[in-house]
Every structure is written in C-alpha cells, then in structure tokens.
C-alpha cells in the first residue's frame, strides 16, 4: 500500500531521516514507534507529500508521489485521512462545519445529505451532540475525536494518526485506542499511527516499526517486537513493563 524506499531528509544541518525503508501493508494498523524529536511526524508527513524528501521514493499504491505535480498529488491525497497531533481543527468553524469541510470541498452533494454524513461521522466518535460547538469549547480528547470524524469524512482508504493519545489521560487514551481499532476494523482501513506510547501501541498494532537515529531499526509484529534485541527498543519496552508493574 505504502512503501518508503531509502528516504532521506535534512533540515539545515540536522539529518532527520537517514535512509528510511518501510512497508505499510494494506488493511492493517502499523505503529511507528520512536523517541520524541526523532522524526516520526516528519516521516508521516512524507507519506502524504506534505514534506518532500531530499532523496528516495515514496510509493502509494505503486505511484511515486515524490515526482508528482501538485495537482496529481492532491488527487492522491483524497485517499488519505489524517488526524493531527493537536487535531488541527479549523478554529473559525464549528465541529460540524469542520467535518463537513472536506465533503463540501470534494463532493457535490445536497446540504441535507452533507448534514446526514456529518451526523453519522460525529456519532461514530460520540460527538453527535456537539456539532454546533467551536473547537475552543472542546477538551483535548473531544478535539481528537472531532479530528478523527473529519479525517474519515470522505471514507479514506488510508488513515494517518500523529500521536493520537499524547496528552490524554489513561481513560481517554483507551477510548481513542478503541476508536482506532473499531474504525480500522469497520471501514477496513490501512492505518499508520505515530506513537511513543507502548501500552497504546500494543493495543492497536498489527505491525510495529521502530524509528531510531533516522532509520527503521526494527520492524515486526507486536510479538516479534517484544522479543527484540535492539538496545534502545529494549529500553522502551523495559520502561513500559516497569510502568505496568508499578
């Protein structure tokens, strides 16, 4: 579905991605783990073409998006939905209008039908009663759920999540994880999740990739990851297990 081949990216003197090779399988949830500031969000934005790599290929359904014109890239992006770290809701629009935004942009539908879809999507994330509210009136968790409703408004094939549970309490984290699992299963989506939350990762992942020092150092199923020999990933796991025991 998505393949990254030898992707390099630098910002000024900082070499963030140093030859990333990664395969994202169709219809599965892949979690990309890594330390904070390690380039996970940069990697995710490469998959959407929001950032262009210095070198390397990014194939979406076999098409190298690094070589596409803006017009063709925008067409490819219609396959995607993305939930940003802080939801990135348009603060001048209500929650309902936020969810309606991509539908109005890309589909010629009567207003009644648009409102029906908005209601459906908000109901999926448990926010049907909050359609009229502005983003500033919502809590962090509600914003993320509203962002998810907007991300699935056009029924995308691929859903990208940038740290969906960062800054949330454990109860809300579990709720969001559950939402990701349900959405992935019900809509048969390909999901890519950026995270450094191990508990969340093991709940939602079919595959896990570990980004370390600009490369995918380890990739495998959750079971394979649990038995890793990679020293940094091991530290991640040990920290997680200590936290669980406590």
């Amino acid at each position: 579905m998505i393949d990254l081949i030898d992707v390099h990216k630098s910002f000024n003197t900082q070499h963030v991605l140093r030859g990333v090779n990664l395969h994202i399988p169709k219809g599965k949830t892949t979690v990309i783990l890594g330390q904070s500031g390690g380039g996970k969000s940069v990697l995710l934005k490469h998959m959407l073409g929001l950032i262009k790599p210095d070198s390397g290929q990014i194939l979406v359904d076999g098409v190298d998006i690094t070589k596409l014109s803006d017009k063709k890239l925008f067409a490819i992006r219609k396959k995607f939905g993305m939930l940003f770290q802080d939801a990135a809701l348009f603060d001048s629009l209500t929650i309902g209008e936020n969810v309606a935004f991509p539908i109005r942009e890309h589909k010629r539908l009567p207003e009644k039908k648009i409102q029906k879809i908005v209601k459906e999507k908000l109901a999926l994330v448990g926010l049907e009663e909050h359609a009229h509210k502005m983003p500033s009136e919502l809590s962090g968790g509600m914003k993320k759920r509203a962002g998810l409703a907007r991300a699935i408004a056009l029924d995308p094939e691929i859903l990208l999540f940038d740290e969906p549970t960062t800054g949330l309490d454990p109860v809300m984290t579990k709720k969001i994880d559950h939402l990701i699992i349900e959405t992935q299963k019900n809509l048969n989506l390909t999901c890519v999740v950026i995270s450094h939350d191990m508990a969340s990762t093991f709940r939602i992942a079919h595959n896990i990739a570990f980004l370390c020092q600009g490369v995918i150092a380890v990739q495998g199923t959750p079971e394979e990851i649990k038995n890793t020999d990679h020293p940094v990933l091991k530290e991640f796991l040990e920290g997680f297990l200590r936290h669980q025991e406590a």
Binding site: R77, F101, H106
Partner: peptide, 8 residues
C-alpha cells in the same frame, strides 16, 4: 497542513 492533507 490539515488543509493540504484534505487535498485543498
């Protein structure tokens, strides 16, 4: 980025 991600 959200706008661009929504192909706008």
């Amino acid at each position: 980025d959200a706008l661009a991600a929504m192909a706008v």
